[in-house]
């Protein structure tokens, strides 16, 4: 499988990364080089093999469904590029 310029534009859109037309061609070559390299995975016989979901044989731990943290909104927004009254400020989303 290989990607073309349109696919590069579509992936960039999905990834929310703006790419210029000059960059599209470069990415097309680079992504195809990587995809060409990983293509060999198709050779491996994986009949009856389960995909790995956890590298260590473990059960995910559960904890009590209770509030254990919070109450410091000012810390949460402390690093925001733009905030007001402990809210994150963004451009208008809904008209």
């Amino acid at each position: 499988m290989s990607v073309d310029a349109d696919t590069v534009r579509r992936i960039a859109r999905l990834a929310r990364i703006r790419v210029t037309e000059d960059e599209v061609a470069a990415y097309e070559g680079e992504l195809n080089a990587i995809l060409g390299f990983v293509e060999q995975l198709g050779e491996v016989d994986v009949e009856g093999v389960e995909p790995m979901t956890s590298v260590a044989p473990m059960q995910l731990r559960r904890r009590e469904d209770a509030v254990t943290d919070g109450g410091y909104a000012e810390k949460i927004v402390a690093n925001a590029p733009l905030s007001e009254d402990n809210f994150f400020m963004v451009p208008k989303v809904v008209e």
């Binding site: 995975l41 491996v44 093999v49």
Partner: peptide, 12 residues
């Protein structure tokens, strides 16, 4: 084709 296959290879 890519992700699930890679995770199976990882098991191996």
């Amino acid at each position: 084709a890519y992700y699930v296959q890679a995770q199976k290879v990882r098991t191996l």
